[in-house]
Amino acid sequence: MANIQTLDPDASPLAYYGAELRRHREAQGLTQPQLGSAIFCTGSLVGQVETTKKVPTRDFSERVDAALGTDGVFSRLVGLVLRSQLPTWFQAYADMEAKAAYISTYQAQLVYGLLQTEDYARAVLATGMPDDLEGLLAARMERQRILERAKPPLAWAILDEAVLYRPIGGHEVMRAQLQKLLDHATHRWMRIQVLPFEAGEHESLDGSFNLLRFDDDPDIIYTEDRISGHMTANPETIREASLRYAHLQATALSVEESVARISRVMEERYGARP
């Protein structure tokens, strides 16, 4: 007799998802290979998701809903599952980011997470040698869904020019990443500025930060160190961060000049004309 692993649906969102997947599959009399065939994957992958050894993606969940006729159950569950895969110290920020009406970010080292391509994000996340790289990657890609809403948050990103030159993942990955920045730069709700090398010393030499504004809640500033993230709604800190961000905006290239700078770096450094 096959050794069927007992599942505790209360253990975590991932365990609940796996238990529900098994319950709905068995209710329709399907084996794991049969469901896998219906959703264009292996039965082994279905089994790994059911036993929490693999984190489901949104695409997997949508295919399961279509195959089992579950009326979006798994498409709704997967957001909760992927959010739970984020580092514990980051989950509170991700929750606030998803509720924000306005996001301002200054990034000194990397492209902001909401603007990263999948390959760029994979290369960034791999530097931390996580136990489940693909789970973390899926969670980061899930965060980006807030930009796909009918009414997304207004967003303003200032990127240090060094971000454009640091070859995360290699030249092909960087070409695609800079193209994504150019694509977003033309969106009505997004503005991207480049803080050029020629700016010299500036207001935020001590690092990156994010400023979140809400319709009905106090503003929040978020920073990170090597180990964790830090949020505060302290009015004096918010005031200082807002002033610093205004200075960065004034020092950075204009939006139009920034598009030209990204295009130039993309062509000259990564060998691709945007």
Rank of each mutant, 00 (worst) to 15 (best):
L248E: 00
V111F: 06
P153D: 07
A139E: 07
R58M: 06
A138R: 15
E118T: 14
D119N: 13
P274Y: 01
S254N: 11
I168P: 12
D219Q: 13
M174T: 03
M174A: 04
L133H: 13
D71G: 10
A138W: 03
G170T: 08
T70M: 05
Y102S: 09
R122N: 07
A250F: 05
E268L: 06
Y245L: 06
E201P: 15
A38Y: 09
T186P: 02
T51G: 04
I103S: 08
S208G: 12
S44V: 08
V255P: 14
D217E: 14
T31Q: 10
G229S: 10
D219F: 02
Y112E: 15
T88W: 08
Y102L: 10
R143P: 08
D95I: 07
A155F: 09
T117C: 11
L115V: 00
S254P: 11
A162L: 00
F40R: 14
L14D: 05
A66C: 00
Y102K: 14
P167H: 07
Q107R: 13
V111A: 04
H171W: 02
R191D: 08
E256Q: 15
R166K: 14
R261E: 12
L125V: 08
S208F: 00
L159A: 09
E26Q: 14
N3D: 10
V173T: 12
M141C: 09
S12G: 04
L243E: 11
E142H: 13
G271C: 02
A108G: 09
E20Q: 14
A138F: 06
L212G: 04
G169I: 00
M1W: 10
R140T: 11
A15Q: 04
S84L: 01
Y112M: 12
E236Y: 04
A11L: 07
S258P: 04
L14R: 14
P196R: 03
S75A: 13
P9V: 02
L137W: 13
D119L: 09
D216M: 06
A246M: 09
R175A: 07
H187D: 11
A185Q: 14
S228Q: 15
F90G: 00
Q48R: 15
T186Y: 02
A250P: 12
I221Q: 10
A250D: 15
L178W: 01
S258N: 07
R261I: 01
P153V: 01
S228R: 15
Q193I: 00
A11T: 03
Q28W: 05
D65Q: 08
P235K: 06
L253E: 12
F90C: 00
G135E: 04
Y112H: 15
